[in-house]
Amino acid sequence: MDLATIIGVLLAFGALFGMVSMEHVEISGLIIPAPMVLVFGATLACGLAGTTLKDAIANLKAIPTAFTGKVVPPASVIEDVVGLAETARTNGLLSLEQEADKHDDPFLKKALQNIADGTDGEELRILLEDEIESNASTLRNASKFFMGLGGYAPTVGIIGTVVSLTHVLANLSKPDELGPLIASAFVATLWGLLSANFLWLPIGGKLKKLADLEVARQTLLMEGLLAVQAGSQPRLLGERLRAMVPPSARGDAAPAKGPKGKGKGAADDEALAA
Protein backbone atom coordinates (compact mmCIF):
# COMPACT_ATOMS: atom_id res chain seq x y z
CA MET A 1 0.00 0.00 0.00
CA ASP A 2 1.31 3.44 -0.95
CA LEU A 3 0.76 5.97 1.86
CA ALA A 4 1.60 9.14 -0.07
CA THR A 5 -2.00 10.30 -0.50
CA ILE A 6 -2.95 9.60 3.12
CA ILE A 7 0.14 11.41 4.41
CA GLY A 8 -0.34 14.31 2.01
CA VAL A 9 -4.01 14.88 2.87
CA LEU A 10 -3.32 14.65 6.61
CA LEU A 11 -0.44 17.11 6.34
CA ALA A 12 -2.60 19.51 4.32
CA PHE A 13 -5.38 19.50 6.90
CA GLY A 14 -2.78 19.62 9.66
CA ALA A 15 -1.26 22.75 8.15
CA LEU A 16 -4.73 24.30 7.89
CA PHE A 17 -5.60 23.62 11.51
CA GLY A 18 -2.14 24.77 12.53
CA MET A 19 -2.83 28.12 10.89
CA VAL A 20 -6.29 28.26 12.48
CA SER A 21 -4.71 27.66 15.87
CA MET A 22 -1.99 30.28 15.35
CA GLU A 23 -4.51 32.84 14.15
CA HIS A 24 -6.80 32.04 17.10
CA VAL A 25 -9.73 31.36 14.76
CA GLU A 26 -12.72 29.53 16.16
CA ILE A 27 -13.08 26.13 14.46
CA SER A 28 -16.83 26.36 14.92
CA GLY A 29 -16.82 29.42 12.68
CA LEU A 30 -15.40 27.34 9.79
CA ILE A 31 -17.43 24.16 10.19
CA ILE A 32 -20.88 25.45 9.26
CA PRO A 33 -23.27 22.77 7.94
CA ALA A 34 -25.19 24.85 5.37
CA PRO A 35 -22.26 25.88 3.11
CA MET A 36 -20.63 22.47 3.51
CA VAL A 37 -23.82 20.73 2.39
CA LEU A 38 -23.99 23.02 -0.65
CA VAL A 39 -20.33 22.61 -1.62
CA PHE A 40 -20.08 18.84 -1.26
CA GLY A 41 -23.62 18.08 -2.38
CA ALA A 42 -23.70 20.36 -5.41
CA THR A 43 -20.15 19.42 -6.45
CA LEU A 44 -21.01 15.71 -6.48
CA ALA A 45 -24.29 16.49 -8.23
CA CYS A 46 -22.47 18.40 -10.98
CA GLY A 47 -20.04 15.52 -11.41
CA LEU A 48 -22.95 13.10 -11.66
CA ALA A 49 -24.65 15.30 -14.23
CA GLY A 50 -21.60 15.07 -16.47
CA THR A 51 -21.43 11.28 -16.62
CA THR A 52 -23.63 8.20 -16.41
CA LEU A 53 -24.99 6.81 -13.15
CA LYS A 54 -23.11 3.55 -13.66
CA ASP A 55 -19.81 5.33 -14.26
CA ALA A 56 -20.39 7.70 -11.32
CA ILE A 57 -20.86 4.75 -8.95
CA ALA A 58 -17.74 3.06 -10.33
CA ASN A 59 -15.77 6.30 -9.96
CA LEU A 60 -16.81 6.76 -6.34
CA LYS A 61 -15.84 3.16 -5.61
CA ALA A 62 -12.32 4.06 -6.78
CA ILE A 63 -11.80 6.45 -3.84
CA PRO A 64 -10.28 3.76 -1.55
CA THR A 65 -7.86 2.83 -4.35
CA ALA A 66 -6.38 6.35 -4.25
CA PHE A 67 -5.48 5.83 -0.58
CA THR A 68 -4.61 2.14 -0.56
CA GLY A 69 -3.49 1.47 -4.14
CA LYS A 70 -0.63 -0.99 -4.41
CA VAL A 71 2.48 0.00 -6.35
CA VAL A 72 4.44 -2.99 -7.67
CA PRO A 73 8.16 -2.21 -8.06
CA PRO A 74 9.58 -2.96 -11.53
CA ALA A 75 12.35 -5.07 -9.98
CA SER A 76 9.72 -7.51 -8.70
CA VAL A 77 8.14 -7.78 -12.17
CA ILE A 78 11.51 -8.39 -13.79
CA GLU A 79 12.36 -11.06 -11.23
CA ASP A 80 9.08 -12.87 -11.92
CA VAL A 81 9.56 -12.75 -15.70
CA VAL A 82 13.15 -14.00 -15.51
CA GLY A 83 11.96 -16.87 -13.30
CA LEU A 84 9.31 -17.74 -15.89
CA ALA A 85 11.95 -17.58 -18.64
CA GLU A 86 14.12 -20.06 -16.74
CA THR A 87 11.14 -22.37 -16.27
CA ALA A 88 10.25 -22.22 -19.96
CA ARG A 89 13.88 -22.77 -20.97
CA THR A 90 14.13 -25.83 -18.73
CA ASN A 91 10.69 -27.43 -19.08
CA GLY A 92 9.27 -25.91 -22.27
CA LEU A 93 6.48 -23.41 -22.88
CA LEU A 94 3.77 -25.90 -21.89
CA SER A 95 5.06 -25.73 -18.30
CA LEU A 96 3.86 -22.11 -18.15
CA GLU A 97 0.29 -23.35 -17.89
CA GLN A 98 1.11 -24.71 -14.44
CA GLU A 99 2.88 -21.45 -13.57
CA ALA A 100 -0.30 -19.55 -14.43
CA ASP A 101 -2.14 -21.33 -11.61
CA LYS A 102 0.41 -20.01 -9.11
CA HIS A 103 -0.32 -16.32 -9.81
CA ASP A 104 -3.32 -14.20 -8.84
CA ASP A 105 -2.75 -11.50 -11.45
CA PRO A 106 -5.44 -11.99 -14.17
CA PHE A 107 -3.28 -10.26 -16.80
CA LEU A 108 -0.31 -12.54 -16.13
CA LYS A 109 -2.52 -15.65 -16.00
CA LYS A 110 -4.10 -14.80 -19.35
CA ALA A 111 -0.73 -14.19 -20.99
CA LEU A 112 0.79 -17.42 -19.66
CA GLN A 113 -2.26 -19.45 -20.67
CA ASN A 114 -2.12 -18.10 -24.21
CA ILE A 115 1.61 -18.81 -24.48
CA ALA A 116 1.03 -22.37 -23.30
CA ASP A 117 -1.79 -22.73 -25.82
CA GLY A 118 0.56 -21.74 -28.65
CA THR A 119 -1.02 -18.39 -29.55
CA ASP A 120 0.89 -16.57 -32.29
CA GLY A 121 3.21 -13.88 -30.95
CA GLU A 122 1.72 -11.01 -32.94
CA GLU A 123 -1.82 -12.01 -32.06
CA LEU A 124 -0.83 -12.27 -28.41
CA ARG A 125 0.72 -8.80 -28.50
CA ILE A 126 -2.49 -7.31 -29.92
CA LEU A 127 -4.56 -9.15 -27.30
CA LEU A 128 -2.38 -7.98 -24.41
CA GLU A 129 -2.19 -4.38 -25.65
CA ASP A 130 -5.99 -4.26 -25.80
CA GLU A 131 -6.14 -5.75 -22.31
CA ILE A 132 -3.72 -3.13 -20.97
CA GLU A 133 -5.75 -0.28 -22.42
CA SER A 134 -8.99 -1.75 -21.12
CA ASN A 135 -7.61 -2.26 -17.61
CA ALA A 136 -6.30 1.32 -17.44
CA SER A 137 -9.55 2.89 -18.59
CA THR A 138 -11.31 2.34 -15.23
CA LEU A 139 -8.80 4.33 -13.20
CA ARG A 140 -8.35 6.94 -15.90
CA ASN A 141 -12.10 7.56 -16.07
CA ALA A 142 -12.21 7.87 -12.28
CA SER A 143 -9.27 10.29 -12.43
CA LYS A 144 -11.08 12.52 -14.92
CA PHE A 145 -14.20 12.43 -12.72
CA PHE A 146 -12.38 13.67 -9.62
CA MET A 147 -10.36 16.22 -11.56
CA GLY A 148 -13.73 17.50 -12.79
CA LEU A 149 -14.98 17.72 -9.20
CA GLY A 150 -11.90 19.76 -8.43
CA GLY A 151 -12.99 22.21 -11.09
CA TYR A 152 -16.61 22.41 -9.94
CA ALA A 153 -15.98 22.82 -6.21
CA PRO A 154 -14.47 26.36 -6.14
CA THR A 155 -17.24 27.70 -8.39
CA VAL A 156 -19.91 26.06 -6.25
CA GLY A 157 -18.26 27.67 -3.23
CA ILE A 158 -18.49 31.09 -4.87
CA ILE A 159 -22.17 30.45 -5.58
CA GLY A 160 -22.69 29.71 -1.90
CA THR A 161 -20.89 32.91 -0.94
CA VAL A 162 -23.06 34.96 -3.31
CA VAL A 163 -26.20 33.42 -1.85
CA SER A 164 -25.01 34.23 1.68
CA LEU A 165 -24.07 37.79 0.72
CA THR A 166 -27.62 38.40 -0.49
CA HIS A 167 -28.68 37.52 3.04
CA VAL A 168 -26.10 39.99 4.37
CA LEU A 169 -27.43 42.77 2.13
CA ALA A 170 -30.94 42.06 3.34
CA ASN A 171 -29.81 42.78 6.90
CA LEU A 172 -27.96 46.08 6.44
CA SER A 173 -30.32 47.61 8.96
CA LYS A 174 -28.61 45.48 11.64
CA PRO A 175 -24.97 46.66 11.56
CA ASP A 176 -24.07 44.72 14.71
CA GLU A 177 -24.80 41.46 12.85
CA LEU A 178 -22.97 42.26 9.62
CA GLY A 179 -19.54 41.05 10.79
CA PRO A 180 -20.55 37.47 11.64
CA LEU A 181 -22.81 37.27 8.58
CA ILE A 182 -20.04 38.35 6.19
CA ALA A 183 -17.57 35.96 7.83
CA SER A 184 -19.94 33.02 7.49
CA ALA A 185 -20.68 33.98 3.88
CA PHE A 186 -17.08 33.26 2.88
CA VAL A 187 -17.10 29.81 4.48
CA ALA A 188 -18.65 28.38 1.30
CA THR A 189 -15.75 29.73 -0.79
CA LEU A 190 -13.31 28.31 1.77
CA TRP A 191 -14.79 24.83 1.57
CA GLY A 192 -15.00 24.98 -2.21
CA LEU A 193 -11.30 25.75 -2.51
CA LEU A 194 -10.36 23.42 0.32
CA SER A 195 -12.27 20.38 -0.98
CA ALA A 196 -10.92 20.91 -4.50
CA ASN A 197 -7.26 21.23 -3.50
CA PHE A 198 -7.16 18.99 -0.44
CA LEU A 199 -9.37 16.16 -1.73
CA TRP A 200 -10.67 16.02 -5.29
CA LEU A 201 -7.56 17.07 -7.22
CA PRO A 202 -5.15 14.91 -5.16
CA ILE A 203 -7.45 11.90 -5.52
CA GLY A 204 -7.74 12.46 -9.28
CA GLY A 205 -3.99 12.89 -9.63
CA LYS A 206 -3.24 9.77 -7.61
CA LEU A 207 -5.65 7.64 -9.63
CA LYS A 208 -4.01 8.83 -12.87
CA LYS A 209 -0.59 8.00 -11.45
CA LEU A 210 -1.75 4.54 -10.40
CA ALA A 211 -3.19 3.96 -13.88
CA ASP A 212 0.11 5.00 -15.49
CA LEU A 213 2.11 2.74 -13.15
CA GLU A 214 -0.19 -0.20 -13.89
CA VAL A 215 0.17 0.38 -17.64
CA ALA A 216 3.95 0.46 -17.22
CA ARG A 217 3.89 -2.75 -15.16
CA GLN A 218 1.70 -4.63 -17.60
CA THR A 219 3.71 -3.36 -20.57
CA LEU A 220 6.88 -4.64 -18.90
CA LEU A 221 5.18 -7.97 -18.32
CA MET A 222 3.95 -8.12 -21.90
CA GLU A 223 7.38 -7.45 -23.41
CA GLY A 224 9.00 -9.93 -21.07
CA LEU A 225 6.49 -12.70 -21.69
CA LEU A 226 6.62 -12.22 -25.45
CA ALA A 227 10.39 -12.54 -25.21
CA VAL A 228 9.94 -15.72 -23.14
CA GLN A 229 7.68 -17.07 -25.88
CA ALA A 230 10.37 -16.24 -28.44
CA GLY A 231 12.95 -18.19 -26.42
CA SER A 232 15.08 -15.36 -25.04
CA GLN A 233 17.93 -16.26 -22.71
CA PRO A 234 16.88 -15.42 -19.11
CA ARG A 235 19.90 -13.31 -18.11
CA LEU A 236 19.79 -11.23 -21.29
CA LEU A 237 16.04 -10.87 -20.91
CA GLY A 238 16.53 -9.48 -17.42
CA GLU A 239 19.02 -6.92 -18.73
CA ARG A 240 16.67 -5.92 -21.53
CA LEU A 241 13.75 -5.40 -19.15
CA ARG A 242 15.89 -3.38 -16.74
CA ALA A 243 16.87 -1.15 -19.64
CA MET A 244 13.17 -0.40 -20.18
CA VAL A 245 12.81 0.98 -16.63
CA PRO A 246 14.01 4.48 -15.65
CA PRO A 247 17.16 4.24 -13.48
CA SER A 248 15.42 5.87 -10.52
CA ALA A 249 12.74 3.16 -10.53
CA ARG A 250 14.91 0.09 -11.02
CA GLY A 251 15.89 -0.41 -7.39
CA ASP A 252 18.87 -2.49 -8.48
CA ALA A 253 21.25 -3.62 -5.81
CA ALA A 254 24.95 -2.98 -6.32
CA PRO A 255 26.44 -5.80 -8.39
CA ALA A 256 28.21 -8.47 -6.37
CA LYS A 257 31.97 -8.40 -6.64
CA GLY A 258 33.84 -11.26 -8.17
CA PRO A 259 37.57 -11.93 -8.13
CA LYS A 260 39.87 -8.88 -8.32
CA GLY A 261 36.96 -6.49 -7.80
CA LYS A 262 35.20 -7.43 -11.02
CA GLY A 263 31.42 -7.67 -11.17
CA LYS A 264 29.90 -11.09 -10.56
CA GLY A 265 28.54 -11.20 -14.10
CA ALA A 266 31.99 -10.55 -15.53
CA ALA A 267 33.48 -13.25 -13.31
CA ASP A 268 30.84 -15.72 -14.43
CA ASP A 269 31.53 -14.90 -18.10
CA GLU A 270 35.25 -15.52 -17.59
CA ALA A 271 34.47 -18.84 -15.91
CA LEU A 272 32.30 -19.85 -18.85
CA ALA A 273 34.98 -18.81 -21.32
CA ALA A 274 37.53 -20.93 -19.50
Score class of each variant (00 low, 15 high):
157 G>L: 04
30 L>N: 04
162 V>K: 06
205 G>V: 00
78 I>T: 05
168 V>G: 12
126 I>N: 13
92 G>Q: 08
153 A>D: 07
53 L>S: 14
57 I>E: 13
122 E>S: 08
110 K>I: 04
132 I>T: 15
260 K>Q: 14
69 G>T: 00
226 L>K: 01
8 G>I: 03
1 M>F: 13
128 L>H: 08
199 L>V: 15
23 E>C: 14
145 F>N: 01
242 R>G: 12
114 N>W: 04
105 D>I: 08
254 A>M: 13
87 T>Q: 02
88 A>Q: 06
258 G>E: 00
256 A>C: 04
226 L>D: 08
189 T>K: 03
109 K>Q: 13
261 G>F: 11
94 L>R: 09
264 K>T: 08
131 E>F: 15
220 L>F: 14
189 T>L: 06
181 L>V: 00
196 A>Y: 07
144 K>C: 03
235 R>G: 04
127 L>V: 14
242 R>Y: 12
142 A>L: 00
169 L>M: 12
195 S>W: 07
210 L>V: 14
149 L>F: 11
63 I>C: 10
69 G>P: 06
107 F>H: 06
253 A>G: 14
192 G>L: 02
184 S>D: 14
210 L>P: 11
271 A>C: 04
96 L>D: 01
256 A>P: 10
79 E>H: 15
96 L>H: 01
51 T>R: 01
272 L>N: 09
48 L>P: 02
178 L>P: 09
14 G>N: 02
69 G>E: 00
57 I>D: 10
126 I>A: 11
239 E>R: 12
238 G>C: 03
233 Q>H: 10
40 F>L: 12
94 L>C: 05
70 K>V: 06
163 V>W: 09
196 A>S: 14
175 P>E: 09
75 A>I: 10
20 V>N: 02
135 N>C: 09
253 A>N: 07
72 V>F: 12
85 A>C: 10
2 D>F: 10
245 V>I: 05
128 L>E: 07
2 D>S: 10
19 M>R: 01
124 L>E: 04
82 V>P: 15
8 G>Q: 00
218 Q>P: 05
22 M>Q: 05
263 G>T: 05
12 A>M: 00
171 N>C: 07
133 E>W: 11
159 I>W: 13
29 G>D: 11
274 A>H: 14
90 T>K: 03
66 A>G: 06
17 F>D: 06
76 S>W: 09
141 N>G: 12
56 A>D: 12
146 F>A: 07
202 P>Y: 02
49 A>C: 03
139 L>Y: 12
51 T>Y: 08
16 L>F: 13
48 L>D: 00
177 E>W: 08
47 G>D: 09
203 I>F: 07
222 M>F: 12
19 M>L: 11
223 E>G: 13
240 R>H: 10
264 K>W: 14
272 L>E: 08
133 E>Y: 12
104 D>F: 04
272 L>Q: 12
185 A>C: 11
225 L>C: 13
234 P>Q: 09
158 I>C: 11
